[in-house]
Design a protein around this nucleic acid. Structure first.
Lengths: 345, 345
DNA sequence: CACAGAGGGGAAGGCGCTTTCCTCCGTGCC
DNA sequence: GGCACGGAGGAAAGCGCCTTCCCCTCTGTG
């Protein structure tokens, strides 16, 4: 079979010559087409390709065909389970459609989203999915919006998983409603003195969750003072630090709401370090329902988001032909009450 | 500025015409070259490109240049923090070198590694990094080896993070030695009756860790019976199920070693579900030191692997010119003793 | 002032593939 | 037997870009 060693690069022409057919026939035999190829020729081409270890140049194909099968995924951080779950869902779905996924991470620097979308346009990606909170920065949003429009004008599709700030198909996470429902549930369990570990002040996701939680509490007559809302990083360390801050301020608190699970984890670590018993000394709630965190003790009360599904849905969205009006799919979180917020005695 | 709306596709020729220069000059102005372009022409080109929202076709560039700036990352599952940490490291490093990373996940089906490497060859990726345990399957390994050779022959670079089974640059994780050291440390803490949650029997990583642990125990005169080694999934649920199995068998065990942290987490959940106190009723140790899990209680004893660094190192490896002899970089894990395995009274 | 040489613009070839368009052959029908 | 028509192979025209090669112009030197 593989008698001949492949040279640096075997081209289709080599295969065609080896099979004694024309370039056109070789191409049709290997990649199919509307045209039919006589079986014996087809076989000869296939054999030649195999013997030469031919591998079509995807770049050249893309150029000749005028389109690629690339889908770009722009996320904040693969290391963060929130994003990696969504990514897993998107990648799984992409594979079902023979699409190649390329991932880019902003690592918290949102302005890079713009660069990445531009890069993806340059790659002539078929679609791009941008995952992550929009930020409270009009200039940034506008520039990203412009880049997105350029991308779409060159024939690509775009979907967001975040807030609806840019005119493109978006999977909107109902952060506000979810946090509101969570707050109400916690009030029902008897909590009254809340603190919020609010994460980055410029992140809309963080703001919405924070605001929603306050609304929910307010419905039960509980006002959360500004002093009980502590900002910081949107990650584990941010949760840890914010929790320490709350403790140091000496506020009278019986339950903290961290605007995401990873922060809640940090908060629990901080409480432990400070010798506060969980959950008796302090109740803790998060948001997202990160799979890896389902086994922490005490089990974390949170708002469940169907993370993997989000990725798959977004992919589905960009695969469907675009509509004149951007489509919006709202996803509601589901409050999951667990041991970290027991019913108050 | 952007008076004109970009058509479906603005080409370099459009830019050149708009700027009143030749294609060659436009190319040189935009991408730089050994040749210099007169400043006024350069500016005109840049302006035209901007006005037209020109975006170079990366495919065409790649074809003309004969190489891409793509790096492929083949991992098992982005959703698994072990892999996503490594991926984060690789992506970070890649960005420093203006490389685009595309990720592919096998989701536990190792034969797909072969397909992905083939796909990456087709993409003319500059390099590919394969992360994950080799499996005990000679046929599979050989086929992957052949594909890797093809990839290298077409000019690409390959690195593995796993066992040294294929002739390519490899970052070898000293699983055996790490597990051995862990076992010894646990013996020193007074444990004598171990069970091993061994994960998938065909995964070399699992096998090595399991074997290493038994060796370490043996050095302290502790033999681990075959009945105390339970196989299963290499993930959280696998750990859970295996732990249940150990309990159901009614073996006399005071410490379980799960061959990775995520499994250990599952095991802890199982113990809790069965009402076994942690760590007093059962000590638990894992392997990897997953960041997200550093905050579980009781804090998990494990073997720390510099996951993010692994990704960065692998990238560095594939960026350096290839040597005639595959390079091997051995990475030793560091035993981290925590509360989940207290000194036995 | 003449000429060599450097600097920089432009035409054109080529990267590997797909896809039209042309051509040839074989078949069926009048 | 002649002609129309369909089926299939092959030549060739791009796809968008980089880069070599050619040539013109401008500068510096003897």
């Amino acid at each position: 079979m593989n008698e001949r060693v492949a040279t640096a690069s075997v081209t289709l022409l080599d295969v065609a010559r080896a099979a004694g057919v024309s370039l056109a026939t070789a191409s049709r035999a290997l990649n199919g087409s509307t045209r039919r190829v006589r079986p014996d020729l087809r076989d000869r081409v296939l054999e030649a390709a195999d013997a030469l270890q031919y591998s079509a140049n995807a770049q050249a194909q893309a150029m000749a065909r005028g389109h690629t099968n690339l889908v770009g995924l722009v996320i904040s951080d693969v290391g963060d389970p929130y994003f990696s779950s969504i990514a897993a869902g998107a990648i799984r779905a992409a594979e079902d459609h023979q699409l190649v996924v390329t991932m880019a991470c902003t690592f918290g620097r949102e302005e890079r989203e713009i660069d990445y979308v531009a890069a993806l346009r340059s790659q002539r990606a078929r679609a791009v999915i941008v995952v992550g909170s929009r930020v409270h920065d009009r200039g940034l949003t506008d520039r990203l919006g412009a880049e997105v429009r350029s991308f779409e004008q060159s024939g690509g599709r775009v979907a967001f998983i975040s807030q609806r700030k840019i005119a493109a198909d978006t999977i909107v996470l109902e952060n506000r409603a979810g946090a509101r429902a969570l707050a109400e549930a916690l009030c029902c369990r008897g909590y009254r003195r809340f603190a919020i570990l609010a994460g980055r002040a410029d992140l809309l996701t963080a703001r919405d969750r924070s605001a929603g939680f306050r609304e929910g509490a307010a419905r039960h007559g509980v006002q959360i003072a500004q002093d009980d809302v502590v900002h910081g990083g949107f990650n584990r360390d941010g949760g840890y630090d914010a929790m320490i801050e709350v403790l140091d301020r000496g506020r009278d608190v019986d339950c903290v709401f961290a605007v995401n699970d990873v922060m809640a984890l940090g908060a629990m670590a901080a409480l432990r370090d400070r010798g506060v018993a969980l959950p008796s000394g302090m109740a803790v709630a998060g948001f997202d329902d990160i799979v890896t965190l389902r086994d922490v003790t005490p089990a974390l009360t949170t708002v469940r988001l169907p993370l993997e599904d989000l990725g798959a849905w977004a992919l589905q969205l960009v695969l469907e032909p675009s509509t004149d009006q951007p489509r919006i799919r709202r996803v509601r979180g589901e409050v999951v009450l667990r041991e970290s917020t027991p019913v108050r005695p």
